[in-house]
Lab assay of single mutants.
Amino acid sequence: TTIEWNGTKITVDNPQKAKELAKKIAKKLGLTVKVHGNTITIE
């Protein structure tokens, strides 16, 4: 699972952990999480 935001890509083996990490990042930055299959985008 890949997390993408602002040109940065982070690959996380565990999809559940990836989703939790994305939510934490999005919350800190005041952004939203969008899931597209194996890609999680923070916008």
Rank of each mutant, 00 (worst) to 15 (best):
T1L: 10
T1S: 08
T1M: 14
I3W: 04
I3P: 06
E4K: 09
E4M: 10
W5V: 09
W5G: 04
W5T: 04
N6T: 08
N6H: 12
G7K: 07
G7N: 08
T8W: 15
T8R: 14
T8Y: 15
T8I: 15
T8P: 02
T8L: 15
T8A: 08
K9Y: 11
K9N: 06
K9V: 13
I10Q: 01
I10Y: 07
I10D: 00
T11Y: 15
T11I: 14
T11K: 09
D13H: 13
D13N: 13
D13A: 15
D13M: 15
N14S: 13
N14A: 03
N14K: 04
N14H: 06
N14G: 05
N14T: 12
P15G: 05
Q16E: 12
Q16P: 02
Q16A: 12
Q16F: 11
K17F: 11
A18I: 04
A18M: 02
A18R: 02
A18C: 09
K19V: 15
K19Y: 15
K19R: 12
E20H: 10
E20V: 11
E20L: 14
E20W: 15
L21M: 09
L21W: 13
L21G: 00
L21S: 00
L21R: 02
A22V: 03
A22T: 01
K23R: 11
K23Q: 13
K23V: 12
K23S: 09
K24I: 13
K24T: 07
K24V: 09
I25V: 03
I25A: 01
I25W: 06
A26E: 04
A26H: 04
A26S: 06
A26R: 14
K27R: 10
K27D: 14
K28D: 10
K28L: 13
K28N: 07
K28Y: 12
K28A: 10
L29P: 05
L29D: 03
L29Y: 15
G30D: 02
G30C: 06
G30I: 01
L31H: 05
L31Y: 07
L31T: 04
T32F: 07
T32I: 13
T32H: 10
T32N: 09
V33H: 01
V33K: 00
V33E: 01
V33D: 00
V33Y: 09
V33G: 01
K34W: 06
V35H: 07
V35T: 06
H36I: 11
H36D: 12
H36C: 14
H36A: 09
G37E: 06
G37R: 03
T39I: 13
T39L: 10
T39E: 06
T39H: 09
T39N: 07
I40M: 03
I40G: 01
I40T: 01
I40D: 00
T41V: 13
T41G: 02
T41S: 09
I42Q: 00
I42P: 01
I42G: 00
I42Y: 02
I42N: 00
I42V: 06
E43Q: 13
E43S: 13
E43N: 08
E43G: 15
E43C: 11
